[in-house]
Design a protein around this nucleic acid. Structure first.
Length: 294
DNA sequence: CCACAGGGCGGCA
DNA sequence: TGCCGCCCTGTG
């Protein structure tokens, strides 16, 4: 990979397995805006950055080399060898087909607290609504970042900002019955520095420990805990099962009528430590192709 | 107006 | 342990 520094833009040349659309549309991220030119504007780490595939390059606009090195290299999972992961996951025809639709997927390394709250909002909720609630919370309680391409952008509220918010104001952001849960989680983190440390260590402690810890929060069960571990904790053995993954697995593998527990076991045996990557390829494939699901 | 979508929790076998 | 009704909001 070559990095070209264009002052307000960073251009990546000769980067393999990196497709902006696939990365943003595979269900791991909520705070982005699809621009008319097909580029994606991301809000993360109190920054607003725009990404686009142009020919065989990635153009990253509204950033600089310092931020690229300090934030985006890790966030975009640039140093992980996806060709190796793919070769290890092409174990059957299902996976070969799924991967062929999303060879450019990356699993991002997102902020742990933001992902924790975001996926708590995802409980019994649809993606457009989840995105709306997160935007509402950011506008209501987060700090203003800047204007970009005519739109105002706000940072995700900090632990303090969310913990100090009134319950009624959180409800007004359309969080519904999740309002108490996210407020309680923020208050717990505000008042317990050791829990913040533990949350930030979920990429270093064993998967089971992280799972157990996350599930002590009201509003975090198996699915959401696994999402947090996968999307912010580098725990790529995590295999979150939502209604979509359940249907996909029941359709593509001999698992019709099997419970989540049995699907979890199957995934662990089949995909091992790469189950999280497998989940992303399968999800993107099923959503992109509209295959008939059970 | 109604039916339905979408995880977690708490009550109850 | 497993099942079931409920939580909230938006869409068809």
């Amino acid at each position: 990979m070559d990095i070209i520094d264009n002052k307000t833009k960073i251009i990546l040349k000769n980067i393999k397995n990196f497709n902006i659309k696939e990365i943003f549309e595979c269900g791991q991220i909520f705070r982005y805006f699809l621009e008319d030119d097909g580029s994606y504007t991301l809000t993360a780490h109190s920054k607003v950055v725009n990404f686009k595939n142009v020919d065989d390059c990635i153009v990253i606009d509204h950033t600089n080399l310092e931020d690229f090195n300090n934030i985006w290299v890790n966030y975009l999972d640039i140093n992980t060898d996806y060709e190796k992961i793919i070769s290890e996951l092409e174990i059957d025809d299902v996976m070969k087909t799924a991967i062929s639709f999303g060879r450019g997927i990356r699993i991002l390394n997102q902020d742990k607290y933001e992902i924790m709250i975001s996926f708590m909002i995802s409980a019994n909720n649809r993606i457009p609504m989840i995105r709306k609630v997160i935007e509402n919370l950011s506008v209501a309680f987060g700090k203003y970042i800047c204007k970009y391409r005519g739109r105002d952008y706000f940072a995700f509220p900090t632990i303090e900002e969310l913990a100090n918010a009134d319950l009624e104001d959180i409800k007004n952001c359309k969080a519904g019955f999740r309002s108490e849960r996210i407020r309680e989680a923020a208050i717990r983190l505000r008042d317990n520095a050791d829990e913040v440390d533990l949350l930030h260590s979920i990429d270093e402690i064993p998967y089971e420990k992280g799972l157990e810890f996350l599930k002590t929060y009201k509003g975090i069960g198996d699915k959401i805990a696994n999402c947090i571990l996968l999307f912010s904790g580098k725990q790529v053995a995590a295999f979150p099962i939502d209604v979509w993954i359940r249907r996909i697995m029941q359709t593509l593998y001999p698992l019709s009528d099997k419970s989540d527990k049995e699907i979890q076991k199957f995934a662990k045996e089949k995909f091992g430590d790469l189950a999280g990557y497998a989940q992303q390829y399968l999800f993107y494939y099923a959503r992109e192709t509209n295959i008939k699901l059970k």
